[in-house]
């Protein structure tokens, strides 16, 4: 009986916390569909006639549209390349160079200790010299450092959790290393790798400082969103809210897609061909 009460209490508390966490997001989403006068009323309005004006403004504005396109390109390439290079590297580290694994992991972690400005300023100089300042390629390059290292950092433990005997059993069936990796290690570690990719994605999708310092014309979405907020007194709240929604939506879509991919990978049970 007591345990039942406790359990319900825990549920209520949890629901309350989730509500608190989600309220700003919900409020922002609602705000994205409001006209400015519905937002700046002294009494908050729950019921209003929704409008798509804000989204129209956002997607109609070339700066924001370009920012969105730039963000998608930069982040997709950086995360994609990061995964393609980082995941096999992590597997190799986990299997063949365990003693370097810890060092590699600490190195990656130590990258996070440094204030980003400390990286940004030397990068400006180098990029100006190389002539890749304010280019998507340059941004991708600097993000690759983050994505590859983060993917490795999170994927090494994922591969370590794949029992070595399973890979050995596959080798006994004649599979070479690459085949063992594709047909066994990767699908078995996939659920953990998924988390690694999502984390990496979010990290670079939200990155502001490097994008702000290394690009001017080719700004990414966080830079554009930040510039809207500094428009002065006449703050277009509805537009900001809509921009936020646009900023948050791609990660959600990305997570959904990845989740589907992994589910199908796990369910298919590896090779179907003869």
């Amino acid at each position: 009986m007591v345990s039942l009460i406790l359990r319900n209490l825990a549920r209520v508390t949890l629901a309350f916390l989730v509500l608190i966490a989600l309220t700003p997001i919900l409020w922002t989403t609602l705000g994205a569909f409001k006209r400015l006068r519905d937002i700046v009323t002294p009494v908050p309005k729950l019921f209003f006639s929704p409008t798509l004006e804000n989204f129209a403004t956002i997607l109609g504005s070339p700066t924001i549209r370009d920012g969105l396109v730039n963000s998608v390109i930069v982040v997709a390439v950086a995360v994609g390349l990061g995964a393609v290079l980082g995941i096999p590297a992590a597997h190799t580290l986990a299997r063949h160079a365990r003693r370097w694994g810890d060092d590699a992991q600490f190195f990656v972690l130590s990258l996070r200790f440094m204030p980003p400005v400390a990286i940004a300023i030397p990068f400006i100089v180098i990029y100006l010299d190389l002539g890749i300042y304010d280019s998507l390629g340059g941004l991708i390059l600097v993000y690759l450092v983050t994505t590859i290292s983060t993917v490795i950092w999170l994927a090494v433990p994922a591969f370590e959790r794949v029992p070595r005997e399973i890979e050995e059993a596959a080798a006994m069936e004649g599979c070479r290393e690459a085949e063992v990796f594709w047909r066994f290690s990767l699908p078995i570690a996939a659920p953990s790798l998924f988390g690694a990719l999502v984390f990496t994605f979010v990290l670079v999708w939200n990155e502001l400082l490097l994008a702000l310092t290394l690009a001017a014309q080719n700004a990414t979405l966080p830079v554009v969103a930040a510039s809207i907020t500094s428009l002065g007194k006449e703050v277009p709240w509805g537009v900001i809210n809509a921009a936020t929604v646009v900023l948050v939506l791609p990660p959600l879509v990305f997570i959904g897609l990845l989740m589907g991919l992994i589910n199908s990978m796990v369910r298919a049970g590896g090779p179907k061909k003869g």
Partner: peptide, 28 residues
Amino acid sequence: HPGARGVAMVFQSYALYPHMTVADNITF
């Protein structure tokens, strides 16, 4: 290579492929 020796091994930890059915495990 282990696969070219004509030997088969059974491990203490079973080492079954968790992402495949029993039939797929056996016939892989």
